[in-house]
């Protein structure tokens, strides 16, 4: 077991670093008027990051492939979202499809 001191220091450093990353945007926003094209780029960056999160969370578990049940559930949710189904339906359908597939033995 590693010493609690260095682990606590790592937690505090992570908390401080994460908080600084979170504050940078809001703190700078007031001082600098961002040009329009940059605002657009930031919006696009946010959408790209969220899309990348969707794809990696759907397909990857740790270092390897997450199995078929999870991406199938996400795909079902995605199709419903595309058909403009309510948010609740999208999320519950995604979970239900993955859970049902696992129940019948799909990894």
């Amino acid at each position: 077991m590693m010493p609690a001191g260095s682990m606590a220091a790592a937690v505090v450093a992570l908390a401080a670093g994460t908080y600084a990353l979170r504050c940078a945007g809001p703190a700078l926003r007031d001082r600098v008027e961002l040009p329009h094209w940059l605002t657009r780029r930031i919006t696009m960056a946010t959408v790209v990051l969220l899309a990348a999160l969707v794809a990696t969370q759907a397909l990857v578990d740790g270092e390897g492939f997450a199995g078929w049940a999870r991406p199938a559930g996400v795909l079902a949710g995605g199709v419903l979202a595309w058909l403009k189904a309510p948010f609740l339906v999208v999320v519950l359908a995604g979970a239900a499809v993955a859970a049902a597939l696992r129940m019948v033995g799909v990894p």
Partner: peptide, 13 residues
């Protein structure tokens, strides 16, 4: 519970 699929589906929506 299929929660691992619910989160990406949620962000996608």
């Amino acid at each position: 519970l299929g929660l691992d699929a619910a989160f990406p589906a949620m962000l996608l929506a």
